[in-house]
Computed example of a mutant assay.
Amino acid sequence: MTSTVSSIDTIETEDVSARLLDSAAQLSYDPAEEVAWDEPLDPTLFGLNPEWSTLYGTAMWEKMTQEQRILLTRHEVCSIMSTGIWFEMILQQMVLRDQYCKDSSNSDFQFALTEIADECRHSIMFARACKTMGIKAYLPRRTSIELGRGFKALASAEAAYGGILVAEEVLDVMQRDWMRGENVLPLVRTTSNIHVVEESRHMTFARAQMRERIQGKSVARRKSSALVVAIAARIIVSNMVNKGVYEAAGLDADRAIREAKNNAHHHAMMRTSSEHLMAFLLDCGLITKPAEAIYRRLHML
């Protein structure tokens, strides 16, 4: 019976991948051509919607000048883009490891490589966007970098795709707001739109892969994978906004970190961005008590 169910799931994921390949052929972007890289940056426009700033709604935000708010959001978006590059590099290695020596005639294999090609373009796009804004890359903490090495090398298939989904889902909700924000730099709006369109296919692929890979696994395996995905979420989310962004905006960094940590508005925004992800993980049986505790500390639940 288990073998039959597994075969059906494999056929279904192949169908999903075939549809995604058709979609990629019909709608994909070349950021080198689509983004107006030489357009001057309007000094009155934010790097991301102010509502997504980690300090929005705090006493500190109220006392900041408009110039400081704009500068902070530009550094915040570049920090998030830098974290995106870091995790996209992890993602590419995990997908390659998963597809190593598999049947290249399968749609799963071909879409996996299509996704890797997309992620390469996205990483270059984010790097170029930060450089255009005159902001250097914000790197993750050293411990996170080393944990990332272990995760990309050792994570089981469902945990690997779960980690991929965490990064993509949270950023997707944010970027859907950024690309519509009339007070956001066109550079950020365009790069966000490209990422949202192409990442929607990646998320569909990750969900299909997770459903197939978790099917029939033992309770112990599910509990282990649930914890690994939650830990991956903690590493990703905690590195999204580097502490250096506050100094770059001319703020008291220690006070800014305290206010950001206790910012109820930003906590609510994080829960909003995680709603679909949490529902999916729950449906897959990947929300256990230990995992739930981690997500609550991250304000994702």
Rank of each mutant, 00 (worst) to 15 (best):
M1D: 08
S3T: 13
S3P: 08
V5D: 12
S7R: 10
T10A: 11
I11P: 05
T13N: 09
L20I: 04
D22Y: 09
A24E: 07
P31M: 07
E34S: 12
V35T: 05
A36S: 14
A36P: 03
W37I: 06
D38N: 15
L41N: 05
T44A: 15
T44E: 13
L45F: 13
N49T: 12
S53N: 10
T54P: 06
Y56V: 01
Y56M: 04
M60G: 04
W61N: 00
H75T: 05
H75V: 07
E76N: 06
V77N: 01
S79M: 05
S79H: 04
T83R: 02
G84C: 09
M89L: 13
Y100V: 11
C101T: 12
C101H: 13
S104V: 15
F111A: 00
E119A: 09
C120I: 11
R121H: 12
H122T: 07
R128P: 10
T132S: 12
T132D: 09
M133L: 15
I135W: 01
P140S: 04
R141Q: 13
R141N: 15
R141L: 14
L147H: 07
K152D: 02
L154G: 06
S156G: 15
S156L: 14
E158L: 04
A159W: 01
G162K: 00
I164V: 14
M174K: 01
D177T: 06
W178C: 05
M179E: 07
V184H: 02
V184A: 06
V188D: 00
R189I: 05
T191I: 11
T191L: 08
V197C: 11
E199A: 05
S200C: 12
H202K: 09
M203E: 09
A206W: 00
A206N: 05
R207D: 10
A208I: 06
A208H: 04
R213C: 03
G216Y: 12
V219K: 13
V219D: 13
R222P: 06
S224Q: 11
S225Q: 10
A226K: 00
L227A: 11
I236V: 12
L251S: 02
L251F: 09
D252Q: 13
D252K: 14
A253K: 11
A253W: 07
R258M: 06
E259C: 06
N262I: 08
N262W: 07
N263K: 03
H267T: 06
M270Q: 04
M278Q: 08
F280D: 08
L282F: 05
G285W: 02
T288F: 02
K289D: 15
A293R: 14
I294S: 02
Y295G: 01
Y295N: 04
